[in-house]
Amino acid sequence: MKKLTKLIILCLIFLLPMSFLTGCWNSKELDQLSIVQAIGIDRTNNEQISLTSQILIPSAISSPGSSSGGGGTGRGSTGAQGVLILKSTGETVYDALKNATYEADRRIYLPFNKIIVIGEDTAKGGIAPLLDFFLRDPEPRGNTYILIARGNAEDIIRTTHRQESVPAKALENMITGTLNTSKAVEVNLHEVSIALADHTSDLFLTGIEMIKQEDQGQEIKKPKLSDTAILDYDKLIGWFNGQETRGMLWIRGEVKEGIIVVQSPGPDKGKVSLKIINASSQVKPEMKDGKLMITVKVKENGTIGEQMSPAANIDTPEYFKELEKRQERVIKEEIMAALEKGQKEWGVDIFEFGEEVHRKFPKEWKELKKNWGEEIKNIEVKVEVESNLRMFGKTTSPE
């Protein structure tokens, strides 16, 4: 009987919330909410919080040809395809968000927000206080992407897109689409919260900027993922380019796929594109005579994706071996570039070295962590790379 009672209670716990969700997305209720798709955070000259919010217009995206136009380039409320752009200010993020309702005339609704963009100058002052509301309030979701803008976040939020009626969706697709290069990163609110609570590793976030481009004879501005923002705990300290970003990801064991271009060993010196199939890494800290040393071992498996050297004898073991050496050299160069800037110059731990040291040397870590930002600069890091080419595709020659 007790088991039956417990079973009934469990069923009620799971079924009751579902009853509240049934039919919740009718048109009347949608019209009573301002459904946020993206938020930009900047600071004003007098240190107020400035929020630029991309609000969904359900009627604009459900009816073909009903886009409100507007371009999203003006001030105040402007239509931008399937969204409305609202700008509000306040003493805090929460205050600014509430102030947006004066213009929206509806309750701001955050569960479907996809993107939070923080302006470059604003990020230099620290992002932790700016994200506190989103981490504390139950509405925002942990899978929201966090980006740092080169310039103002407002410019990114006001952008339009030819193929997507909701620009935030285009930004989301850009983030997920560039992961196959391993030269860009994808970081969400949940991952940021873990890093901020850890105090061992430092943060890195997706960078984005507005670029000028010619389109049908006219100059337009459009967003582009731009490098990786590197933070000292929560303060923006600098940027990694694509090669440095991948160097960091090699160390962390987070390179999934991508292309490495090397010069062919053949007589005509054409280019060869080597496709990354998979990769792994090991970070091994050691203590020698009281001095901390770290060895990074990276193993990569790849294949020949393209070779532009007609005279190359691609199917010989010697050719493969030389390509592997050249690929190993590129990987090592990328890793060393990331270490030189991140470890030696900035003293940030975006490589999770502290976590590995803590795991292997817990007693020594108690002292090392007190001044880890300086300690990490003096660590000797040895890099070992092993690359293996498995195959050369369907043909041995480009002809």
Rank of each mutant, 00 (worst) to 15 (best):
T78I: 13
T200C: 08
V192W: 00
S63Y: 06
E214N: 13
V255F: 02
Q243P: 14
V381S: 05
G151H: 03
F20Q: 13
V192S: 03
D137G: 07
T78H: 12
A128D: 14
G302H: 02
M210Y: 04
N388F: 12
N173M: 15
K169N: 14
T22Y: 13
I314M: 14
L292N: 07
M287P: 08
L205V: 03
D31G: 10
T5H: 13
D234T: 04
S77N: 13
E355C: 09
E374L: 08
P167H: 01
Q263K: 15
R158C: 07
S67R: 06
R107V: 08
L171A: 02
I55S: 01
G79P: 11
N45L: 14
T160C: 11
I8A: 11
I237R: 06
P317A: 15
L7T: 12
I9E: 06
Y233L: 15
G177T: 06
F204R: 01
K291C: 10
K221N: 15
S62F: 07
E380C: 11
T176W: 12
A312G: 06
E244M: 09
L225K: 00
I230Y: 01
G71Y: 04
W365I: 01
G82H: 00
A338N: 02
I35C: 01
G393C: 10
I57L: 04
D42L: 04
N388Y: 15
I39L: 06
Q282N: 10
P285S: 05
I208E: 00
N371I: 07
A311N: 13
E380V: 10
L110H: 02
E374D: 13
K271I: 12
I9K: 10
I211Q: 07
D315R: 12
I220A: 05
L236K: 02
Y319C: 08
G90W: 01
I49H: 02
P111E: 00
A168G: 00
V192D: 01
E374H: 08
T73K: 12
N188F: 07
A80V: 14
D42P: 12
I294S: 03
V283E: 02
Y102H: 15
L389D: 05
